[in-house]
Design a protein around this nucleic acid. Structure first.
Lengths: 192, 192
DNA sequence: GTCTATACTTTGATAGAC
DNA sequence: GTCTATCAAAGTATAGAC
């Protein structure tokens, strides 16, 4: 199984870059730092990613794929759409605290220029997430599924924010219970 | 009332810097840009703020004061602690969409180093906010006031995040109603 | 004397050449 | 993988206007 060192260079670079970006932020990490971490040459990096912007874009695109994966896993982990929504929140609660939070949101904050590719990717991502959550909510018996989806999105956004700053002991600790209560409320006969 | 031009230089600089920081982010704004915006000299700026870090710190401290002001105004705008909590959410919902969101959170994302003064200020701020909201919630008849405070905090954090990225039409649009439902739920006899 | 304006130094980054 | 061109930004120093 002779692996081709060239073919996985792309992923190896992205792994190292993503790790550094997640830990220190995009601006704080230089291309040289990524090269040092990898022990590769500059030529290789710039052949795989022609510029730092391209690298950042690839990093964010991978983050969106990771999110989609999270969503799929949550869907598999439960049978009812209600429990699937809870699973999404649980997944975020598991990974958010102790980290720097959501890569897409942090990078969004680091690149405020609306025309910057990193900015656009994150905006597109959050529009998609909103639609995904509403779509999931539409499969529940909620009277107002769009509202339920939006409320879960607020919880998730707050969870990333609170969890990354205050850690696991912060306001995010009980987010899953919160989500469960919200779903119960929105699908209760009183509201319907 | 002969005003001393020197004495308000500090505030004028801070005004201009805060505006630029809010719009473009701290990293993206250079000291020269602030000087150009103000039409002042470098000497003056560096006499009032010995370094960019000092300026950023002053900017964040002012943001925390603005938040305290928001909280006080919300307290005055309603009689019951329940409605005061709603007013806090309403205040955030009024200002968050269309802006870049919360200065403290954005700057937190821009300075991931735990020992950076900007990082510490924002962490302290969010710890304080959490306590303030819990304190407010304790004056309601909620069975679990800390939980109510934390849930309101999640909504506010999510509101800043969602509102700044997706705008007023995003998931944040109905945050006030959400907060109201949560407060009603947490103070309802069924939960108590 | 206080502020503006500009020139300079240093640092650290991207990017490319070899 | 080292070396270098280029550029932008933080500070510093200094010269000059009111």
């Amino acid at each position: 199984m002779a692996r081709n060192p060239t073919s996985d260079a792309h992923d190896r670079i992205l792994d190292a870059a993503a790790d550094l970006f997640d830990r220190y932020g995009v601006h704080a990490v230089g291309m040289q730092q990524i090269i040092d971490e990898l022990g590769c040459g500059k030529q290789l990096l710039y052949r795989e990613f022609a510029s730092k912007d391209k690298l950042v874009v690839a990093y964010l695109q991978r983050s969106t794929r990771d999110w989609d994966r999270t969503l799929e896993d949550a869907a598999k982990a439960a049978d009812t759409p209600e429990e699937q929504l809870v699973e999404v929140v649980r997944a975020v609660q598991m990974m958010a605290p102790g980290t720097r939070g959501c890569s897409l949101r942090n990078t969004h904050a680091e690149f405020p220029q609306p025309d910057h590719p990193a900015h656009r990717i994150s905006v597109d991502h959050f529009r998609t997430v909103r639609e995904q959550l509403r779509e999931l909510a539409r499969r529940t018996p909620a009277a107002n599924p769009d509202r339920l989806g939006d409320r879960i999105m607020l919880i998730i956004d707050g969870l990333y924010a609170s969890g990354s700053i205050l850690g696991a002991a912060g306001a995010a600790a009980e987010a899953v219970d919160f989500a469960r209560d919200v779903i119960r409320f929105e699908t209760s006969p009183a509201v319907r």
